[in-house]
Write a protein that binds this DNA or RNA. Structure first.
Lengths: 334, 334
DNA sequence: CTGAAAGCGCTTACAG
DNA sequence: CTGAAAGCGCTTACAG
């Protein structure tokens, strides 16, 4: 690979002049510039981003840290974030933690050593201290979907409201025994979904029907979990007429479990996912779901992050918390 | 952030000694080492990877370039590659091209300027020249799933055989009118799938039933495409008793189209996907599919890539082409 | 308008 | 066993 020095030599100027010509940092005589450009062309020179980064203290790279990509809203989100970042001249580095705090810690440790200028994270809920340290180190940070620390800006969905409205929607459809498949309450989104559900149930005078497993802290974001929860609900509540699933994969599991038991959807049982992403459309029984505007959320998160990265050290932007509402997409299942 | 210099000052030694102590490059007196470690601890020093990279000419970062992540084997693959790379101390940078050669070109251009030590790519088929240039520049490269250039090592699936065997499997199940939903032939995998299909049809004396749209070069890797192809097949071939779909999303679309027409699966129509990934298990009608061992493929690709990256310049490893066979996972749809 | 010099944070021969 | 020096490839005051 050709370096600045090679170009300088070929164009018979100093490296600093080449640098200025390339970056437009200051005026360079047209003739000189032409010679330089010719040399650049000839050597097919391209600047070494490492050296630039070292010199300028910026990497133009961000990290996206998500629990998983499989069949979750994080799939959409990661794709949108990457696109939005690229549109602004930033590369992104993707990491999945599998929702395991240990993986997350390891990943954060690597990242903090100058790998990236900032990160967008949907955290596991356990490494709050480390997140703050990294943020304090001067690495920009935005929480997405999961808000676990109030000292760091966030872009999240209004799960409480989505959940509340879904219960009301099902009630209007005639449902009176609505079960909730959720996840560990220590993660904010699950907690919020439960709160919305509870408030609606209270308002409407409905019984709260939750699976016992919800309290468990494990991989609730899975087909198997959704399937077993559905079975539990059906066994314990013969009168059940609707199932609300926290995430799509649980909803898919519910659809499968119901079919396996010969229960028809939506006639005998309505199924709604509280965190839909694009897959809802592609199922045999298309799934009604609350959908978050993932593109807008991604764009906002990237915008906020880059703003923080590029702000002068003396006037960093304050903490911002953006909340997006989901919209109910009516499909066959509910 | 503390730097080497800070540590050196605090430990009253030279930066070079700190460097050696930290990297174990040469023996350092235990007392000195202890002092250094204490300083490191105190300042919570972590080396700047940028500077290390610049100095050593290595980034310990690879790029993963795939067409898309949504509902395709690339989802599994990207996740496995990232994990395999991380296990070997490499970070990965993920890019999607949306199968658009322009996006691909732009992405490759950014990447080549010192961003990464190597890349694993499932290319669009159009930028062969650029790929070779980058490879010639000394950036390690492995093609995955799609082999488009014979001068670059590859790890691919044996689509020809998978396709051939699927026809035979369906034949044994009693199917005699087997339709194929495929994609643009200029991409090697589609071509191979067609070849296997054709060979089997010839061997068994079956009529070839392909959709006209297969010749089209567009987004064939989509639900909409699969749906319309299924409709076309049904309209033109009333006797059809099986559908082979090149990829899962097409298979999902077929399942949906069949249900919409009231055709039962697998009784009246069998459906098999030729490139299954984990989703086949999670559908209402679970989908029979040929599945590639994505973890092994990812591991092999990473291994080969890192070998190439870390090889001495004088003895780079030769070109390797690994072919993995898929296995048929029998599920409800076929 | 352009050159010479310093420096970003590290590593690695070279001495001793 | 450790220090002093050079250099990875760039950018940016500082002169002129």
């Amino acid at each position: 690979m050709a370096t600045l020095k090679d170009v300088a030599r070929l164009a018979s100027v100093d490296v600093s002049t080449v640098s200025r010509a390339l970056n437009g940092t200051s005026y360079v005589h047209p003739d000189t510039k032409a010679r330089i450009m010719k040399a650049v062309e000839e050597l097919s020179y391209r600047p070494n981003v490492l050296a630039q980064g070292l010199r300028k203290g910026k990497r133009h790279t961000i990290a996206i840290i998500v629990p998983t990509l499989h069949l979750t809203i994080f799939d959409d989100l990661a794709q949108e974030i990457e696109a939005a970042a690229r549109a602004r001249g930033y590369s992104s580095l993707l990491c999945h933690t599998m929702d395991d705090p240990k993986n997350e810690r390891e990943c954060l440790r690597r990242l903090r050593s100058g790998f990236v200028d900032g990160m967008i994270i949907a955290a596991t809920g356990k490494n709050t201290h480390l997140l703050r340290d990294i943020h304090a180190d001067g690495i920009a940070m935005i929480q997405i979907v999961r808000r676990q620390d109030h000292t760091i800006s966030s872009v999240v969905g209004d799960y409480e409201r989505g959940s509340y409205e879904t219960v009301n929607y099902l009630y209007r459809k005639g449902c009176r025994a609505i079960g909730l498949i959720n996840g560990p309450m220590l993660k904010a989104p699950y907690k919020a979904r439960y709160n919305g559900y509870r408030r609606a149930a209270a308002d409407l005078g409905l019984e709260e029907i939750c699976t016992r497993e919800d309290q468990r802290d494990g991989v609730t974001n899975s087909f198997e979990y959704g399937y077993s929860c559905t079975e539990e609900l059906l066994d314990l509540h013969p009168d059940l007429d609707a199932i609300m699933a926290a995430v799509d994969i649980q909803g898919m599991a519910a659809l499968k479990a119901l079919r396996d038991r010969g229960i028809s959807v939506p006639e005998q049982m309505r199924v709604v996912s509280l965190t839909g992403y694009s897959i809802g459309n592609y199922l045999e029984t298309t799934m009604t779901s609350q959908e978050l505007p993932s593109r807008q959320m991604a764009e906002k998160a990237v915008e906020m992050l880059i703003e923080e990265i590029e702000a002068k050290p003396d006037k960093k932007p304050g903490i911002q918390n953006l909340i997006f509402s989901s919209s109910l997409m009516e499909r066959e299942s509910g």
